[in-house]
């Protein structure tokens, strides 16, 4: 049934800024792209819990501890909202999770970097969540209704994530010399991977165009990356930290910062599985899944018994 007429109607509908809903007709490629993108996004939230959860038991004050716990919990919630959105497209969560566990599905490479000091909690909130929010704000206007609504909910909750990160790294940047060094070191390690979060340059991002046409994506990778740099440089300066890029400079004419070349070899290498923590992250998810199997089964068995008793 995927004739020209349908496709044209679909495109007109999208162009009119109307939301596609689960039961509406949609091109098969649109559905597939969305399932892939939404589930990758969900996986990223879930895997993204691990590097931060790594510091929950070691948070340096009870206030920081509850903030971090609540933040990581939100990420679980966001993963859940996104799996829900993917399920409206006919995907099954268990199936999607299995793709994550067997390594066939991707998730954001940023979470394959290790959290080695407490300052990384600040850097992640500030930079990684900051970069993610750029993308997420854009996605509140994505053409698929359930995805857009999940993103609205997520963005509402995310606003505290970046603030808490910035606050945490500010405390360090304005603290003792050791703390300041810790903060700068975290910025040095997280800056470039954060820029990589926006994906390949527009010239090297062949799928982006179709996604833009269908209004799944509303801004290009490079546009979002530039916006992020423009916003973040001033935030670093405000707390006396230095962005680790000798080529960074303000361009009066364009009104944007120019920045140095991203190490794309590293980018593709981490995607291929050679990041510092790829194996650990997948191992942790697999262990959680395997160790939970008997629990999930028990609950099913109980529900079944209760049902047959009631019948």
């Amino acid at each position: 049934m995927e004739d020209e007429k349908h496709l044209e109607n679909f495109q007109n509908y999208v162009d009119a800024e109307k939301k596609i809903e689960p039961k509406d007709w949609m091109p098969e490629a649109y559905r597939k792209t969305l399932i892939r993108q939404i589930s990758q996004h969900a996986h990223s939230e879930v895997v993204g819990m691990l590097p931060e959860a790594n510091w929950i038991t070691r948070a340096p004050s009870l206030r920081r501890k509850v903030i971090l716990l609540a933040k990581v919990q939100d990420e679980a919630g966001h993963g859940l909202y996104l799996y829900s959105a993917a399920e409206t497209l006919g995907a099954d969560r268990q199936m999607l999770v299995e793709q994550l566990l067997d390594g066939t599905a991707k998730y954001s490479s940023i979470f394959n970097y290790p959290t080695v000091t407490w300052a990384d909690m600040g850097a992640i909130g500030w930079l990684v969540d900051g970069a993610a929010i750029m993308n997420q704000v854009m996605l509140t206007r994505t053409s698929y209704g359930p995805y857009a609504r999940a993103m609205v909910r997520i963005c509402k909750e995310e606003s505290f994530h970046q603030r808490q990160g910035y606050e945490a790294i500010t405390a360090l940047a304005q603290g003792s010399p050791e703390q300041k060094e810790m903060a700068q070191d975290a910025l040095n390690r997280w800056w470039w991977p954060s820029l990589m979060m926006f994906g390949p340059t527009d010239d090297n991002s062949p799928n982006s165009q179709q996604s833009m046409k269908w209004k799944i994506k509303r801004k290009s990778n490079d546009e979002l990356r530039q916006e992020f740099v423009d916003r973040t440089v001033g935030q670093a300066e405000a707390i006396g930290l230095t962005i680790p890029d000798p080529d960074l400079k303000w361009n009066e004419e364009t009104g944007h910062y120019e920045f140095g070349e991203i190490n794309w070899d590293e980018f593709y290498n981490v995607i291929k599985g050679n990041g510092p923590c790829n194996r650990e992250r997948l191992k942790a998810r697999n262990e959680a899944h395997d160790n939970g199997e008997w629990v999930r089964e028990a609950a099913n068995a109980y529900a079944k018994k209760k049902k047959s008793k009631a019948a």
Binding site: V46, M49, L50, A53, I56, T57, L62, K65, V66, L69, A70, V72, Q73, A76, G77, G79, L80, Y83, A284, E287, A288, N291, G292, E293, V295, R296
Partner: peptide
Amino acid sequence: SEWCGHGPILEEDIAMTNIALDLV
């Protein structure tokens, strides 16, 4: 809180973290 990120299913991860948050 040690469970956070390692629960048997996402829903339960969130539940245990909630209890941890209450307790702390």
